[in-house]
């Protein structure tokens, strides 16, 4: 076959688009909906992309000290659980569903939400809170997970994500 000294290709580890930037808007506070943004943000960081996460409305629970360790999953209103909807309203069902989902997530080696955030920050990701949501919920910067860099209003966010690919979750 090849007779060159080096015939093996070298993978292209350069940025496909130089200066690619992504922003993830996390708007949900349930355990199941916390993950998509975190997983994608983490993957984007691993590809050398600049990443910003903006937590708004219920998504703020993901970075609120008081709630970030206790996000929950509910069967209610979620037909994709393939369970009778009436079951979801029974006492204790949300706790049970939450602990089952946590076990399933742990079984594939994916960490809990605070640990995912820790990894994102260690990989160079930026965390931001939404001004209107923090005002509504009467939260201050000190109520938020320490690595959160600041509280931004809507126009700050638009300005900051100039040229970014934005995902709303």
């Amino acid at each position: 076959m090849a007779t060159d000294v080096n015939s093996a290709p070298v993978p292209n580890f350069e940025d496909s688009e130089s200066g690619r930037k992504m922003a993830f808007i996390c708007s949900k506070g349930t355990l199941d909906m916390a993950y998509p943004g975190l997983i994608l943000a983490n993957a984007a960081l691993g590809e050398g992309i600049e990443v910003h996460l903006f937590f708004t409305f219920w998504g703020l629970d993901m970075i609120t000290k008081k709630h970030m360790d206790s996000l929950r999953f509910t069967l209610l209103g979620n037909t994709a659980t393939h369970m009778p909807q009436g079951l979801g309203g029974l006492p204790g069902m949300t706790s049970m569903a939450t602990s089952m989902m946590k076990k399933q997530i742990a079984s594939i080696g994916v960490p809990e939400v605070p640990e995912m955030l820790e990894q994102i920050v260690a990989s160079g990701g930026h965390l931001w809170a939404c001004r209107m949501s923090t005002d509504m919920m009467h939260l201050e910067k000190e109520d938020l997970y320490d690595p959160v860099e600041g509280i931004l209003n809507a126009s700050d966010f638009i300005e900051m994500t100039d040229g970014a690919q934005v995902l709303f979750i």
């Binding site: 000294v5 093996a8 290709p9």
Partner: peptide
């Protein structure tokens, strides 16, 4: 690209290297 050479050594690589 199953077989290639790196520094004159024969190695098996995928399309990316």
């Amino acid at each position: 690209m199953p077989v290639a050479t790196i520094n004159d050594r024969v190695v098996n690589v995928d399309d990316e290297g």
